[in-house]
């Protein structure tokens, strides 16, 4: 089993590149969601402010 993960002594390189890919994909998803939430929050504050003005 450990042989399978050693990747013929290239394990560090193979696993780190797959891990990095996973991290970049997760960061992309998180960044997108965070940005979306921020825009929504902004719009909500704007609507509240408008309602208070009335």
């Amino acid at each position: 089993m450990s042989e399978l993960f050693a990747m013929g002594n290239y394990g560090v390189f193979v696993w780190s590149s797959f891990g990095l890919t996973l991290i970049v994909l997760l960061v992309c998803i998180a960044q997108g969601n965070w940005h979306h939430a921020a825009v929504l929050r902004d719009i909500k504050t704007r609507i509240r402010a408008m309602e208070l003005d009335k």
Binding site: M7, Y10, G11, F13, V14, S17, F18
Partner: peptide, 19 residues
């Protein structure tokens, strides 16, 4: 990662091309 055969020149390092 597990079923493709290793490359005859690059060994297992070629698996990096999959990402």
């Amino acid at each position: 990662l597990f079923f493709a055969p290793p490359d005859y020149q690059q060994g297992d390092a070629f698996r990096i091309i999959y990402v």
